[in-house]
Design a protein around this nucleic acid. Structure first.
Lengths: 234, 234
DNA sequence: AAATTAAATGTCAATTTTACAATTATTTTT
DNA sequence: AAAAATAATTGTAAAATTGACATTTAATTT
């Protein structure tokens, strides 16, 4: 069989930018790197792509290895392949960003990887080009969440409109008008009002909503314009 | 220096999905592959990433090698890394899509690569997973061009509104209302009306427009909504 | 019973979108 | 030279969406 001689082979890794929301802040899940170089430094969770697996497969495996979670929203962000991005050896990394319900993974943070959640603004210095990956992942998240019903992936099955608004405000680091926000969100027809209320936050209590799974699937890629111009926000 | 032993190294390539517009159809630039495996078959232009270069650099080099063009719009589409995508040897490919003014490269198509422009619908069978790359690139193009002023990259410096509309209709395989289309496009403030007219197409002649480069740069990433819901179109 | 707190809902003007038709500049034909 | 033909350009009104802004409501605390 033909092979491509004369070409350099390189390592291929995946890295996961894992976002979570604790009801207040948008958070990032980081680990302490367990091997050299940069052992003990804060890093994105990652791993090498194995001989028999595809990229998405490797990314999913990596995410599951850390969190134990399955069926999580994950999307390829970009490939990073600068010749010197890993000082040890040339390694191309395909970055994936994931959105998880933080409640599903905050009790027993992996001891093996020394995982920790950081509010995005308080994240420590990261190895290699991981900070750039995070920055681009946040930009992508803002971009897509402005147009598509994406942020629901960060919430538990039941949530209130005020909780949803706090999430949007955390993601865009901006304030939104309550009345316009709820009108916009409810007009998508994606939400089903529950009979129970959330009672921890306020005296009156806010009604819980659930996603209408069927409509959610159907409209996941539709243009819904949650935020008018995310580029103009600050 | 530390190295990552026990991991498999793989080849890394870039492939370019090159779009053009001839005034009628959206076209794709393909080459006949010059080496085994699949020698002589239709393929995207590509090449291996060299030891000292980054991904974008490799993609730009590859595009320039074929077309001789420089300063072309190009953006990373995605990384493709299925274990069996290249039967000869495991190769990860980072795909980039490019938009070029077809007039800049239609006279002297590369003899070395046996390059040819194909209307998208009449493109031949492609090697490996290149058809999937093209399909995803078209989806990306439709997505981004619905929101951002991207398609101007496919036109010459001077163009008319009817020409622009034909381009949009080719990209979305749909018809648009003349009056609403020109109002929408002109309202962006990106176009500067010229004194000359294009006289080949019609008796009356249509005024040429040029891009306001300053405003174009400023609004390139703005949400301008050229097409309301590209997902609903067919 | 009154005060407090956050949730939920309402209104109106401005803007944008959608659907649809008439006018204009120029060349070709009569 | 006038009439016909062709594609470009411009217009209008109803409907839908957005943006700015205040009041009412449900429940707990004082």
């Amino acid at each position: 069989m033909t092979r491509y001689s004369r070409q350099t082979r390189m390592l291929i890794a995946v890295d996961c930018i894992i976002f979570g929301f604790d009801g207040q802040d948008l958070k990032l899940l980081l680990i302490k790197r367990g091997f050299e170089p940069e052992k003990g430094k804060w890093s994105l969770m990652g791993g090498f792509v194995q001989t028999d697996e595809g990229l998405e497969e490797a990314a999913t495996r990596t995410l599951t290895k850390l969190t134990g979670l399955d069926g999580v929203f994950m999307e390829q962000l970009s490939a990073y392949g600068g010749p010197d991005r890993d000082p040890a050896e040339r390694t191309l990394s395909v970055a994936y960003y994931a959105l998880i319900d933080i409640n599903q993974y905050k009790q027993q943070l992996s001891e093996e990887y020394k995982a920790e959640w950081f509010p995005l603004k308080e994240a420590p210095k990261l190895i290699f080009d991981h900070a750039q990956m995070v920055s681009e992942a946040l930009a992508r998240l803002r971009y897509k969440a402005a147009i598509h019903p994406l942020l629901f992936e960060l919430l538990p099955a039941k949530f209130t409109i005020p909780q949803l608004q706090i999430l949007f405000e955390a993601v865009y680091d901006a304030g939104f008008d309550k009345r316009n926000f709820s009108r916009k969100v409810l007009s998508t027809g994606l939400l089903i009002k529950q009979k129970e209320k959330e009672r921890a936050t306020s005296k009156r209590g806010a009604f819980y909503y659930k996603l209408d799974k069927r409509k959610y699937s159907a409209k996941f890629h539709a243009f819904l314009n949650f935020v008018s111009d995310p580029g103009n926000l600050k």
